[in-house]
């Protein structure tokens, strides 16, 4: 939108300004994470002595081994490996569950003539209004009374009880040309065939976008896992962060390197997914919320 009409000299100045602002913004975002990376390469003693610096140490692999295979809790079960696995189970389970349920429900709402369609629609979409955080305690009690504390079901299913994916797929299905259903019907495809042969393949990009968003959302869950998982072998990486901090506080020689590396590991998978599948992710994010 800048002015190709302006004289050349002023254009250059404003472009330089643009780059300066953007670089500052990028640094604001990046520097804290680089610091975490640097801290996970140096010995703990050095951190306590001089804090973060530009010195890249040689402790990364040591810290990595400690982070992945040493437990931080009392039970000895919450190693980095087990937390990483739990994080993946939560992220993938949540994303897949949400997408499957969402697509099914959206398909029913958009493509069928249902007597109670309006009721179902509102019952489902009211859930968009109230985040889990406002009903966290009763949800906990219910999960407890169902005996699902410290289980993956207890961790994942209550998080799925909201309609974001349903809403998203509903929007998308509504934008699919009607003639496609009609053509399919004339071609002899029933509702199940149409769904599997036509609608699901058509939604591939949407499914990918949804998966990325939901995976990141599930992976990053904190409050709910904090309440539901009390046994250390059920901890996710994000849930384990608090424990790391508390250990920092409570000890004389905190294992800063190990802690920083765990924080880094907690960040890397979702960040990589978001960065590599950027265009899908942006599309999914900006279109789902409209």
């Amino acid at each position: 939108m800048t002015a190709t009409l302006k004289p050349r000299k002023r254009l250059r100045l404003s472009t330089v300004m643009d780059h300066i602002v953007l670089t500052l913004g990028a640094l604001f975002m990046l520097v804290p994470m680089l610091m975490v990376l640097q801290l996970s390469t140096v010995p703990d003693a050095e951190i306590i002595q001089r804090g973060p610096s530009l010195h890249i140490g040689d402790q990364l692999d040591d810290n990595f081994v400690k982070a992945m295979f040493e437990a931080s809790g009392f039970s000895g079960k919450n190693t980095g490996v087990s937390m990483l696995m739990n994080s993946f189970i939560l992220g993938i389970g949540f994303a897949v569950g949400k997408i499957i349920l969402g697509m099914m429900a959206a398909y029913a709402i958009v493509y069928f003539r249902l007597r109670f369609a309006t009721l179902a629609f509102w019952a489902i979409f009211t859930t968009l209004l109230l985040p889990l955080e406002v009903r966290i305690l009763p949800s906990y009690e219910i999960v407890q009374s169902l005996g699902m504390l410290n289980t993956y079901q207890g961790l994942i299913i209550p998080l799925i009880a909201s309609a974001t994916a349903t809403f998203f797929f509903r929007q998308f299905f509504m934008s699919v040309p009607e003639e496609l259903v009609e053509a399919a019907r004339i071609d002899g495809a029933g509702p199940v065939k149409f769904f599997i042969d036509i609608l699901v393949p058509l939604s591939r990009t949407m499914i990918a976008a949804m998966f990325i968003i939901m995976f990141v959302y599930g992976w990053n869950q904190y409050l709910w896992p904090t309440m539901i998982t009390t046994e250390e072998d059920m901890y996710t990486l994000v849930r384990g962060i608090k424990q790391i901090i508390q250990v920092f506080e409570g000890t004389n020689l905190p294992e800063y390197g190990r802690g920083n590396l765990l924080a880094l590991i907690a960040v890397i998978p979702p960040v990589l997914i978001v960065v590599f599948f950027q265009s899908w992710f942006v599309k999914g994010l900006t279109e789902s919320d409209k």
């Binding site: 040309p177 003639e179 009609e182 053509a183 004339i186 036509i198 393949p201």
Partner: peptide
């Protein structure tokens, strides 16, 4: 058999 205005071809 029917031919539609927007062809209604299955894009995938």
């Amino acid at each position: 058999a029917m031919v539609f205005q927007n062809y209604a071809l299955y894009p995938h």
